[in-house]
Write a protein that binds this DNA or RNA. Sequence first.
DNA 1: GTAGGGTTAG
Length: 805
Amino acid sequence: MAKALLNFHLHIEPTTSQYQIFPEKTQSSRKSQNHEPRIKHQTSSRSTTTCVNKRKFKRVESSISSIQRLLSYVNSGYLEAALQMFDKMHKSSTFVWNVIIRGLVDSGMFEEAIDLYYRMRFQGIKADNFTFPFVIKACAGVFGLKEGQNVHATIIKLGFDVDIYICNALIVMYAKVGCIEDSEKIFESMPVRDLVSWNSMISGYVSARDGWGSLICLQKMRKSGLKLDRFSYVSGLGACGLEGCLLSGKEIFCQVLRNGLELDSMIQSSLIDMFGKCGEVDYAERFCDKIAQKNIVVWNAMIGAYALNDKSFESFTCLEKMQDDENVKPDTITLINLLPSCSKLGALLKGKAIHGHAIRKGYLCHLVLETSLVDMYGKCGSVSLSERVFFHMKERNLVSWNAMIAAYVQSSNYREAIELFLTLQNEPCVPDETTFVSILNAYAEIALPNEGKQIHCHISKSGISSGTFVSNAVIHMYAKCGDLEAARKVFDGMLFKDLVSWNTIIMAYAIHGFGGYCFGLFSDMTNEGYKPNESTFVSLLTACSIVGLVDEGWKYFDLMKREYGLDPGIEHYGCMLDLLGRDGNLDRAKSLIEEMPLKPTPRIWGSLLAASRHHKNIELAEFAANNIFAFDNDNTGCYVLLMNMYAEVGRWDDVERVRRLMKKRGFERTTGCSVVECNGKTYTFSNYDKSHTESNVIYNVLDILSRKIGEEARSCSVSKFKPPDLLKATSNSPMCHSVRLAVCFGLISTSVGEPVLVRKNIRICEDCHSATKKISEITNREIVVGDSKIYHRFKDGRCSCGDYW
DNA sequence: GTAGGGTTAG
């Protein structure tokens, strides 16, 4: 082991970064980081300090006995020297083993400490009351419940379970590994409890993320007559931050002042952290400003408080102040705290600069830092960089997996998200609510009811499906997969609904075109005492725009401000534009964009573009499209829509121009595909797909249906006058579009009277929409097609969307 | 001669 430790490299060659946000004036020696084993190297450096140390050690070596020397190495943090020495020593006394195990624990080398404990016992050396506190701490350090339980069993067997030091260590260990009940049991059964026992229990609840439990325990401690100390206050403040309880936080602050503890740096950072977590960044700032000598932890807490409270710019200003004014160098945690600010600002370059700095400083590999990078890259829209970090990580935990899955979902890589989720099943990590919410969102975007049901069952089996977060995601998933009934069933069965549950179910009815139900649900919701928020009105206005209720739309648009004091956001304006566009009021739509107090986004111009397409106003479409193109983000749908409009009027030069623009920007047309579920299996079709085993039958049926609905190849609008050289460049004939193939297969594979449900990854085209209406009429079947935005219910030759989408 | 509780992190 000593050899392995000697080979431990702390130096990573610096790389250059284009974006310097961390001025490196001097090549200062790196501080030891929390995440790195804290080993002081006695050799392999030419610095003066080390020479002095060498001389110092020679003196030490010559003057004291080997045991004392071992102790002195451990106490000074020279673990390498201690390990070398330990290897050569006669190891018959428990004391020697205790000293070296402590050294490993103090250096954060928990696994090695546990290994050494077992080696000690294997060699017949008896562990004593000093050994166990170290070993228990090591078990807590690796979150090893099994190891902890094994050690605990030995403690009981040897009769050390009455030792107050050992019990206190066990309380902390069980809380950290997620068994707070065991901590409680030990605490309750202790014949004598001291200050540390109470503090261990109070901090234990914080580790278990039970802030109220911690505060109640603090209260009991006070009642028992004990005087609270700095450790009690620090944990208490952590509890207030967890629960967002500012009142209790302020009470503790007063006690801190009364006891003159406000100069304690640990309390200072805990106070800033508490204020930040309670949403009171101004308090945090005022308190922080008064601290004369701020250490790195205080700065990190302040940067974290800014980041948490959406003050991203301020978090960077704080970093500058820390570096320039106080000459404090950022550490791993500083970087971790800054990354969410990059995500919120969408500042990919800043994020990359932080990544570069971390590499240059040798802060990587670091589990939390790497996970934060995966998260940041995902949120900044660079999923490939998330992947690069994630797949190079030496160690991953559930949070890392969740960050990568979320990055996939965020970038619409739903299949990849699901695949990664399936890979996670083979890992020791157990998926949690966050995993399930992400994965449900992935299924919501691409799955059909049967697959949806399967993932719902999978989650139910895990036993954590009944939480409000997960249930809300299940409602959304079922609604998007086309099973509105299942969505409603989950909603009705919820024990604890929240505002999101109501907003989700209203949106569910909205996308399925049942506006009336939405308004009914809205009044149920307000009658039950829920106060609507911005999202509620997005759901309601979506319902109005999908159903085409202009007056209702304006009513809710006014109501949100007048009755609930909510300012309409970009999404609300988008819905109103959809509504005006549907109504054919293009002038009003245009003027609404000019009047609105917000900067138009691609979503806004997209609404105007859709309206222009529907009303065949190519000038307005060009105007809207040019505004979208100015944004440089991937709105492939808009490019295609404009190309199709140009194609319809035979403006082939313009088609080519837009196509080139798309190519130049590296945007590729999304390949349209449709899925249909038959007899519990999912079948995917692409345009002109002939890969299906039943393709012959499908194409025969399609041919018959096409003729019956009076549609032949030449009558399809887009390809009507298409020159042959552009056939490939623009659009294929819609006659064999994926949605029709899927509908045909659905019709022949399901029983008469059963509706056919198809999902399409992009919006349904005009030709297919019109054809499906006719197919529903001649086959006398209900056909439901969910496109990337809404559900179209085709029945008796009509569609629920009223021919506007 | 060795022991237990602590701050900032996804």
